[in-house]
């Protein structure tokens, strides 16, 4: 069993990390073209990333979408999760399904949907369209983290607040909300990172006018390999890793992912 466990875990780690190591090596290759073994190392492609106005524009576009997009996702999810938890209305399953469905269906469906919608409205290709599409698509993520967070709050704490005379609003802002902050932050950050990396919706909704980073990577890939692509991939992986490590410090990652929470 030990051997089996060792085999499974190392196979998974190699499978998941291996490709990124290759990309990492490629990003440090001084040569413009790929060669093996690498003859000379250099960090110049990372520098190119910072100075090239096109890459910088795509980073800024991605941020302009991900920051408000993830915010919108939380704004959709928080009231919904709270209302469903607090009042348990009839058919709450239907509302939950509506909230979870966008993320469960293949994203290309949301992408065509948003494309058709904005064509119909007559404002195709705007950056706001991508923000809204991402906000709706990724609202599932904070909805789940916040619902899990609400389920983890001891009801007696809220009851205590009521007994002490707090009305619904006061109870929410002084008791529930502060306890929910980790779940909200997790939901926001996860939606933010996912939005930053999202390709197909951004591409179909406004890909020809707003070039986000994944779109830029893909467009450059079509013209062949450049080490800059490798460098930008590594930077992005680094950002994800950093953000997730921070989350792990901030709260219990295991709990946030649903460990030890009963399904009743």
């Amino acid at each position: 069993m030990r051997l089996f466990r060792f085999f499974v875990i190392s196979a998974v780690v190699i499978f998941l990390v291996g490709p990124l190591l290759v990309v990492g090596v490629a990003s440090l290759n001084a040569n413009q073209f790929l060669d093996f073994p690498v003859t000379e190392f250099s960090g110049k492609w990372y520098g190119a990333l910072l100075t090239d106005p096109q890459w910088r524009a795509s980073v800024s576009n991605s941020l302009k979408i991900a920051v408000p997009g993830a915010g919108l996702a939380v704004l959709i999810a928080l009231p919904m999760a709270y209302a469903l938890h607090q009042w348990r209305p009839r058919f709450s399953g239907v509302f939950m399904a509506l909230g979870v469905l966008p993320f469960m269906l293949p994203p290309v469906i949301s992408a065509v949907g948003a494309l058709v919608l904005w064509n119909e409205i007559g404002r195709p290709g705007q950056i706001e369209n991508v923000i809204i599409a991402h906000g709706v698509f990724f609202s599932t993520v904070p909805l789940i983290t916040i619902s899990l967070g609400l389920a983890g709050i001891d009801p007696s704490i809220q009851e205590a607040a009521t007994t002490l005379g707090a009305d619904g609003r006061r109870r929410f802002f002084t008791v529930t909300f502060p306890l929910l902050v980790p779940s909200i932050v997790t939901g926001y950050v996860a939606a933010f990172v996912l939005s930053l990396n999202e390709y197909i919706i951004a591409f179909m909704v406004a890909g020809f006018t707003v070039e986000t980073l994944p779109i830029k990577i893909f467009n450059s890939l079509r013209y062949g390999f450049t080490p800059t692509i490798a460098a930008v991939s590594i930077v992005f992986t680094g950002i994800s890793l950093g953000v997730l490590t921070m989350l792990a410090r901030f709260g219990s990652l295991e709990r946030l992912l649903g460990a030890g929470i009963s399904d009743t």
């Binding site: 994944p214 990577i217 992005f236």
Partner: peptide, 13 residues
Amino acid sequence: TLSEVIVAFAWDL
């Protein structure tokens, strides 16, 4: 969270 674009690129390499 890795972009599918990056995954495809890495495996292509």
